[in-house]
Design a protein around this nucleic acid. Structure first.
Lengths: 203, 203
DNA sequence: CCCATCTGATACGCGGACGTTTCAGATGGG
DNA sequence: CCCATCTGAAACGTCCGCGTATCAGATGGG
């Protein structure tokens, strides 16, 4: 049954896919404009110009949408950092700066994603991904960027402090509470990242 | 009207005050056990062994309770830090360690308060206080403890990064994700706090 | 041209939480 | 002793969001 049929010249799969895409985009818009808490199934559908029927066509429930959304965002961040580090040298200073710049640039360029990340704690499904990602970023920064032993609990602590602190700083800077330019923010985060490395465990 | 009358030997004011206190204590218990999101008017009243009528006798609404709760918690933290710094010398290292220890000890000793602080972002009223307090703590640490110029935007950034990062670290450590002792955590936070000071603006 | 499918809108039932109100019974003052 | 006040429990009305179901009209295949 349900022998998929073209409609207005588009195949069933294409229609479904573009509706899903519209929903994800609409959610990001709502989050960016009104915050995560405002992104209900109803408001998202209204924003997308679709009805709830199509929501449940693509997502099992609201959590599924949020998970898809934040996973896409986190993949984007990782990709951005990966690209920045791809052609980099071995200098810890250079690598740290490139990483910090990738992060700041990513969220500066798309405030919707920034708000999603910043407000992730309001929703359990988002918060779980956020926490996991912070651990991952901490490992990445301490290991791949600064080149210290991430098995050391002190290094883990330092990594989480830098990542958590950077998140807080980004949130404030994007809100206009910190009167520094993009480059100055990157400078400071880089400086702090380098300063925070436990000297006793350098490799 | 409402000519307050004693009941079971207690004055009306005393009865009301103890009910209010019971509600605050119950909220803290619920938050500690089940999280901020679980602290509804109904669950709090049930925990306190009171009914909603008494809730609205002491609080205008749920937000008022949350505000009273987090303000009390933040006052407690400030008091604890103040006491720690009261008899301290001028050494930045000593003052930083005492501050870090005060913070870690406070939340380590009362996980309910820790959970309230950590989960504050889930509720707007709590989050507003949390954000304001972080700015305040950042100023306190950079100014009163480390003795640098808090008018400098770079110092503000560093302060927020340390405070935000410390919050993240505390959250993880209390959750058992960081395998360090109380003293080791204080050591690391102290070390990082000192390392993060922008050297170009020392006073 | 006819009928199955797709679309868009709307209605529905459910549960959770809020804040208000009602009521019977316990308690204390005059 | 009587009656006003206090207590504890419960009921109520409202709102909001979820997830499902219904239905008339548009569209396309055979």
């Amino acid at each position: 049954m349900a022998t998929a049929r073209p409609y207005r010249g588009v195949s069933a799969d294409d229609r479904k896919a573009s509706r899903r895409e519209a929903l994800v985009a609409a959610t990001l818009d709502v989050v960016g404009r009104d915050g995560v808490a405002a992104a209900t199934v109803e408001t998202v559908c209204a924003e997308a110009g679709l009805t709830k029927r199509y929501f449940y066509e693509s997502f099992a429930d609201r959590d599924a949408l949020f998970e898809a959304l934040i996973d896409a965002m986190l993949d984007g961040v990782r990709e951005r950092i990966g690209a920045a580090l791809a052609g980099a040298g071995d200098s810890a200073e250079e690598r740290t700066r490139l990483t910090a710049d990738a992060l700041v640039s990513f969220f500066d360029a798309d405030r919707r994603q920034a708000r999603l990340y910043i407000e992730a704690p309001v929703h359990p499904a988002l918060n779980a991904r956020r926490e996991a990602s912070m651990t991952g970023f901490a490992d990445l920064i301490m290991g791949d960027v600064l080149g210290v032993d991430t098995a050391d609990a002190r290094v883990q602590l330092a990594g989480l402090l830098v990542v958590g602190g950077t998140t807080e700083v980004l949130s404030r800077w994007l809100a206009g509470e910190i009167d520094l330019t993009h480059d100055e923010v990157v400078d400071e985060i880089t400086r702090i990242g380098l300063a925070v490395v436990p000297t006793t465990v350098e490799t």
